[in-house]
Design a protein around this nucleic acid. Structure first.
Lengths: 182, 182
DNA sequence: CTCACTATACCGTCTGGACGGTAATGTAAA
DNA sequence: TTTACATTACCGTCCAGACGGTATAGTGAG
C-alpha cells in the first residue's frame, strides 16, 4: 500500500543536504539541487511543489530519523534508572555520520519557522528527560553534551577528536548507570 | 588611538544579525541590511566593500567577543584546578543575550569557510582545556554543555528553562571546584 | 578639501516558479 | 483486442523580480 518514492525524492533530499554542507545553505537553489540529484528543475518541482516544501521535508527527515533511532534504542534499555538519557547517548554514537543536519541549517536560513517540528521534538524530549530520569540534572547534562556535539558537527567543527568524545560519553554513561549519586 | 567606527559600522553589524535571526540568514541582502541600519546601500558598501567582508566581520565580532569575555573572567580565577572550564562556564552565564551568533549562521550559509576563525578559536580552547585542567574529561563535559546551550540559542530552541540551565551549570561548577573526583 | 556618507540609476546574473509538453504505464469500456 | 482516456513522473523553456556590485553626482560637517 505504501510505496512513497523510492528513488527521486531521496536523491533530491540528499543532494540538497550535500550542497548545504559543501557550499553553504545559501547556495541551495532549485537548479543546483536538480542538477545534483540528476533530474530537471521541472522534475524537482513535481516532487516538491515549492522550495518551502523541500525545506520542510529536510527538517522532517532530520526529526523523524532522530525520533525513530531514539525509540529503537530505548527499547533495549529496560530497567535502567536513566534509560532515556542512555538511549539518547547511544543514538548519537550510532549515527554521527548521516550529516542530515545541514539540511536543517538550510531550512533555518530560508525561514526560522521551519524548525518548529524540531523544536517540538526537543521540547518533549527534555520534558521526558526531567520526568522519567532517576537523576534529571545528570540526564540534562548528558543531553546538553550531545547537543553540543551535534552542534559542532553541524558547523563542521572538529575540535574534539573521536577518542576524547568517546571518553566523555563513556564517563557520562557510567554515571547514568550508577544508582547512587551525590 | 582606538575609536574606529562608533556608530555606522556597529549599526550595520547589528542590523545584519537581527535580520538573520528574525527572517533567516538567507534574507540578508545588502538592500535589507542598509535599510535596517538606517543608511543607503552606498553607505553600506563604503563600510563593507563586499558582502563577504560583512560576513567575515560578523564572525570576527562573535569570536573576539567570546575570546575577550573569556580572558577577562579567567583572570578572576587564580588557583583553581579547573579555572579555564570554570571561566568558560561563567562567560556563558554572563552574556546569553547578545545573540551575535545568528550572524555566524549567516556567514556559514554564504560560505562555510568564513567560520574558520571560530574553528581555530575553539580548537585552541579545547587544547588548553585538555592541557591545563585537573580533570580534563570533566572540563570537556562542561565545554560540551555550554556548546549545547549555545547551539540551542543559535537555533532559537528554548527547550531548557532558565532554572534548569542554572541548576545544571551550578552542578558542573561545583564538580569542577572539587579537588577529589573518581 | 576631505571624510563619511546619501541618493539614484543601472548592469548582468541568478532565482523561484509557472507552464506546456511528453513518454510510459495503467485502466477499462467497446 | 483495440480504442480512449487517466495518471505519473518527469523535461525544457520562459519570465518577472531580486540580487550583488558599480558608478556617479551631491551634501554637509570639520
Amino acid at each position: 500500500m505504501r510505496k512513497p518514492r523510492p528513488t527521486s525524492r531521496d536523491r533530491i533530499l540528499r543532494a540538497a543536504t550535500e550542497i548545504a554542507r559543501e557550499q553553504g545553505a545559501g547556495h541551495i537553489s532549485l537548479d543546483a539541487v536538480a542538477a545534483r540529484a540528476g533530474l530537471s528543475k521541472g522534475g524537482l518541482l513535481y516532487n516538491f511543489p515549492t522550495k518551502a516544501a523541500l525545506m520542510e521535508a529536510l527538517v522532517e527527515v532530520f526529526v523523524t530519523e532522530a525520533a525513530e533511532s531514539l525509540e529503537r534504542i530505548e527499547g533495549g534499555y529496560r530497567d535502567e534508572p536513566n534509560r532515556l538519557a542512555l538511549a539518547f547517548l547511544d543514538a548519537f554514537r550510532k549515527n554521527c555520520r548521516p550529516r542530515t543536519g545541514s539540511g536543517v541549517l538550510a531550512a533555518i536560513a530560508e525561514d526560522p519557522g521551519f524548525v518548529d517540528p524540531a523544536r517540538r521534538f526537543q521540547r518533549s524530549l527534555v520534558a521526558r528527560l526531567k520526568a522519567e530520569s532517576a537523576d534529571p540534572d545528570l540526564a540534562l547534562t548528558a543531553f546538553l553534551c550531545i547537543e553540543g556535539l551535534r552542534g559542532m558537527e553541524l558547523l563542521d567543527m572538529d575540535s574534539l577528536g573521536a577518542e576524547d568524545t568517546a571518553r566523555v560519553l563513556d564517563r557520562l554513561a557510567a554515571l547514568l548507570r550508577e544508582p547512587e549519586r551525590a
